[in-house]
Amino acid sequence: MSLFLEAAAIGLAIAAPVGPIGLLCIERTLRRGPATGFVTGLGAASADGLYASAGAAGMGTLLYTLSTIATPLALAGSALLLYMGVGTLRRAAANHAARASEGGGLLAAYLSALGLTLSNPMTILSFIAVFASLAGGQHATPADAALMVAGVFTGSALWWLLLAYGGGRLLARLGPAGQRRINQLCGVLLIGFAVLMAWRTLAG
């Protein structure tokens, strides 16, 4: 239980900082409701769980493979962020009815967040370091590895649940004008993240 709780705290800490997925969660919660925002977060939590699985297993071969395609993955993620940011700005400029009805279903929201999170393969390095610390420098048993992966996913999913259903209710009180400004800010920040990610990838 202690190992699970420690891993859950790590998953929560990884998910909590404001980033592209957090902005998408907020924007989609305002536009299509908390369920869509939460499912968006679950896509990111699933990606964290996949990387956590690789980190817990110490998959050196997978790590090497990911490192060889890190640049195209990161650039693909930048392009996806740019597309979403521009789309958010366009929806913010449209009427409220159009914003509410636009977009795919829950599966599309989940898959887009999953792909966006997986486009940052260097995240796996963090999980390998964290899991080595949790395991006390020893090779984790299958049971310990499963607990750590489950803890990371649970902690991450808990954050998205709180953001979508708790933060979403607070943001909904802003009214249409306030929500439009929030969406505009989200769009600008998403584009900024896209540019920053591409610049770091090409400069590195």
Rank of each mutant, 00 (worst) to 15 (best):
residue 135 A to E: 14
residue 77 G to R: 08
residue 38 F to Q: 04
residue 151 G to E: 14
residue 47 A to G: 13
residue 98 A to M: 03
residue 88 T to S: 14
residue 143 A to Q: 15
residue 70 A to E: 09
residue 135 A to R: 13
residue 120 N to L: 13
residue 53 S to A: 15
residue 21 I to Y: 02
residue 48 D to L: 10
residue 138 Q to H: 15
residue 57 A to W: 03
residue 4 F to H: 02
residue 142 P to G: 12
residue 190 L to M: 14
residue 124 I to V: 15
residue 182 I to A: 09
residue 187 G to R: 02
residue 54 A to H: 06
residue 65 T to M: 14
residue 109 A to L: 05
residue 59 M to N: 09
residue 50 L to A: 12
residue 100 A to R: 04
residue 51 Y to P: 02
residue 197 M to D: 10
residue 119 S to K: 12
residue 111 L to K: 03
residue 65 T to N: 11
residue 183 N to Q: 12
residue 112 S to G: 01
residue 160 W to A: 15
residue 166 G to V: 10
residue 72 P to S: 09
residue 173 R to G: 14
residue 118 L to V: 07
residue 89 L to P: 01
residue 141 T to R: 12
residue 34 P to M: 09
residue 124 I to D: 06
residue 202 L to A: 09
residue 116 L to M: 08
residue 123 T to G: 15
residue 126 S to H: 08
residue 55 G to D: 07
residue 88 T to N: 11
residue 179 Q to L: 05
residue 185 L to Y: 06
residue 70 A to I: 12
residue 114 L to P: 00
residue 196 L to T: 09
residue 57 A to E: 01
residue 148 M to R: 14
residue 180 R to M: 07
residue 29 T to R: 01
residue 46 S to E: 01
residue 105 G to V: 04
residue 66 L to E: 02
residue 152 V to N: 12
residue 134 L to E: 06
residue 170 L to S: 07
residue 177 A to E: 11
residue 5 L to T: 15
residue 73 L to W: 05
residue 37 G to S: 02
residue 183 N to I: 09
residue 30 L to N: 01
residue 3 L to N: 03
residue 5 L to G: 07
residue 126 S to V: 13
residue 182 I to C: 05
residue 23 L to D: 00
residue 47 A to K: 08
residue 145 A to H: 13
residue 88 T to R: 02
residue 189 L to P: 00
residue 128 I to K: 10
residue 100 A to Q: 00
residue 173 R to E: 01
residue 29 T to I: 07
residue 195 V to M: 04
residue 202 L to E: 10
residue 192 G to Y: 04
residue 161 L to M: 10
residue 46 S to W: 01
residue 188 V to L: 09
residue 43 G to E: 04
residue 39 V to H: 07
residue 141 T to W: 12
residue 13 A to F: 12
residue 61 T to V: 07
residue 1 M to F: 08
residue 148 M to L: 11
residue 103 G to W: 03
residue 73 L to H: 07
residue 175 G to P: 00
residue 131 F to H: 13
residue 196 L to W: 11
residue 48 D to G: 02
residue 181 R to A: 06
residue 92 A to H: 05
residue 100 A to N: 00
residue 72 P to I: 03
residue 47 A to Q: 10
residue 191 I to M: 15
residue 30 L to P: 00
residue 121 P to G: 10
residue 6 E to Y: 11
residue 193 F to R: 04
residue 161 L to H: 06
residue 40 T to M: 03
residue 168 G to R: 03
residue 74 A to P: 00
residue 189 L to K: 06
residue 59 M to D: 03
residue 79 A to E: 08
residue 182 I to V: 15
residue 103 G to F: 01
residue 38 F to Y: 03
residue 186 C to E: 01
residue 158 L to K: 14
residue 60 G to L: 06
residue 197 M to V: 11
residue 55 G to W: 00
residue 71 T to L: 05
residue 26 I to Q: 05
residue 154 T to V: 15
